[in-house]
């Protein structure tokens, strides 16, 4: 997707009335280049949340508390055939590193923790506290 710099254009090519379409293809819900979903706020972060799938109970507290719509959700069926959300990751383009998700995470050993921005995910998971050391 185009960056704002690339989208900078001349007066004869700008959007009519500054009106922005959300979708390039509304039928297929294909997001337009004007959709902020394509804007990156990753450089706002000093620390990033790392998600540990192993410990997650899919309470979805992080999903509902995230102000930036960052949590990647997969729709799965539970044992009774009811659809439910499974957290599968974090969109790091949209995450500003506020840490609310970590704060609301209720598992005994948190399944979300903050790490310095440049920590590799694997490294972070290796450093995860255990029961005796949380």
């Amino acid at each position: 997707m185009a960056t704002p710099k690339e989208m900078m254009s001349t007066w004869d090519k700008i959007q009519f009335g500054a009106i922005l379409p959300s979708f390039e293809n509304p039928e297929k819900k294909l997001k337009s280049k004007f959709n902020s979903f394509n804007y990156k706020v990753a450089d706002w972060r000093v620390e990033k949340p790392v998600f540990n799938r192993e410990l997650c109970i899919d309470c979805d507290f992080c999903w509902v508390s995230c102000p930036d719509s960052c949590f990647l959700v997969e729709e799965v069926e539970n044992k009774r055939g009811k659809k439910q959300a499974k957290i599968v990751g974090i969109n790091y383009d949209l995450c500003k590193g506020c840490g609310v998700c970590v704060d609301v995470c209720p598992t005994p050993i948190k399944s979300l923790l903050m790490f310095p921005e440049f920590t590799e995910i694997d490294e972070a998971l290796n450093q995860w506290p255990t029961k005796d050391n949380k």
Binding site: K31, N35, S36, F37, N38, Y39, K40, V41, W44, P67, D68, S69, C70, N91, D93, L94, C95, K96, G97, C98, G99, V100
Partner: peptide
């Protein structure tokens, strides 16, 4: 309501 907006981190 998509992310990539410019609200402060942690904004309610």
């Amino acid at each position: 309501f998509q992310g990539g907006h410019r609200l402060c981190p942690g904004c309610a």
